[in-house]
Amino acid sequence: MKKQLVFFLIWFIFLEIFFRLPFIDHTFFPSPLVVFKNTLLLLNNNQLIFHLSSSLFRLVIAFIFSLPLALILSLLCAHFKLIDQILNPVIAFSFPLPKVAIYPLLLLLLGIDNYSKVALIAVGIFYLLFINFRIGFLRLRNSQLMDIIKIYPVTRFHYFFYFLMKGSLQEILTGLKLALNYGLTLVVVSELTASNNGIGYFIWKSWDQFKVIDVYSGVLTLSIIGFVLYYFFNKIIERTSRYY
């Protein structure tokens, strides 16, 4: 951690010096410190907070829909071969499709409000959640550990929480990590068109009004959120993988 911080500082200083060199166009390539100051300013006058909260709101709502659905379907697939066989071709066919491609369709069907945006995010993250959960549950069900459960029957509560959930925690966390990351991408994409709030809209609007530095601030905000989530999940995965 200490080492990482040192390298981060070295990079920061290097970029700061580089982007202050006289032959660099400072309008298009502001230095990190200038971007950082501008971001603080935007946070201070609540502009960024407003857009950020709209974006995160969409992400959370999408998770509220996708997470239980992915959990239920992956549980069904892991326990009933027939359901797995029925669902498999659908998933295999629709998973490789870039979800952004269906956005125009969603706009047409659900309107330009939040519905279409949330739907796009929900569809996109569903696959990552479902696929990872399913792999985790199936791995457990097919492992030798299942023999223990057969010989020493457990209660439903224990089976679900102590065996399935705890046992496939690594896959569950991986699914959540990937889904959050991809979800963030889809939030921004969905807000680039037909929107009047959200961090994606903020970046787009800033570009439109030629406020290049605001574009950088938007990007910085996103990368900080992405970094925090990534770091947070990796820490949990690291901590919980000790006993597996």
Binding site: I148, V154, F163, K166, G167, Y243, Y244
Partner: peptide
């Protein structure tokens, strides 16, 4: 591999 590796021995035995 007689026990679930992610549970303590107590949790394992109470489960069974």
């Amino acid at each position: 591999n007689s026990f679930l590796p992610w549970l303590t021995m107590q949790e394992n035995l109470k489960c069974s």
